[in-house]
Simulated assay, not measured.
Amino acid sequence: MDDETVADNLRQLGLSEKEIDTYLTILEHGEAKASTVAEDAGVSKRYVYSVSEKLDERGFVDVIDHVVPTTIRANPPEEVVAALTSDLESLQPELTTRYGNVSEQEREFEVIKTRTTIMKRIRGLLERATEEVTLSIPASLLEEVEDELRETVDRGVLVILLVTGDDTLPAERFEGIASVVRVWGENAPLIVTAERRLGLFAPNEMLVRSNAGTQGIAISQAQLVPIIVGSFFGNYWPMAEQVYVTNPDDLPRTYTDFRHAVLQSTLHLEDGREIAISAEARPVRTDDYATVEGRLVGVRQSLLEPTRDTFAVENALIVEIEAADGGGGDGDEGEGEDGDNRTVTLGGEGAFVEDYETKSVTLEPAS
Rank of each mutant, 00 (worst) to 15 (best):
L95Y: 01
T130P: 04
T117R: 15
V48N: 13
S90Q: 04
A129Q: 07
R98Q: 06
V67P: 14
L149G: 06
L142C: 13
N75Q: 13
P76Y: 13
E131S: 15
E94L: 00
R115Q: 09
S90K: 02
R150D: 10
A82W: 03
Y47H: 14
D56E: 15
P69L: 06
E57I: 01
D65A: 14
T114F: 08
I72V: 15
S103F: 09
D87G: 04
L55F: 08
K45Q: 13
R46C: 01
G100M: 04
T116K: 11
M119H: 05
E127M: 10
L95E: 01
P93H: 01
E132A: 13
K120P: 02
V145R: 09
F109R: 05
T70F: 11
A82Q: 12
S86P: 01
Q105Y: 05
V63I: 10
Y99Q: 01
Y47D: 04
E110L: 13
V51I: 12
Y49C: 02
P69Y: 09
N101V: 02
T116W: 02
L125Y: 14
L55G: 10
L55T: 01
E89P: 00
E106H: 06
S90W: 00
Q92Y: 02
H66C: 05
M119W: 02
G124P: 04
A129L: 12
V63P: 05
S86K: 09
K113W: 04
T117N: 11
E148W: 00
S140W: 06
I118C: 03
V51F: 11
R128F: 08
T134H: 14
E148N: 12
K54V: 04
Q105T: 05
D62W: 08
T85F: 14
V63A: 06
P138R: 10
A139R: 03
A83C: 02
Q105I: 03
K113I: 01
V102K: 01
I72F: 06
T97C: 00
R107T: 08
T96P: 00
D65L: 07
R150H: 11
V63D: 05
L141Q: 12
V145E: 09
D62S: 15
T116G: 08
E104V: 02
E143L: 11
D65C: 07
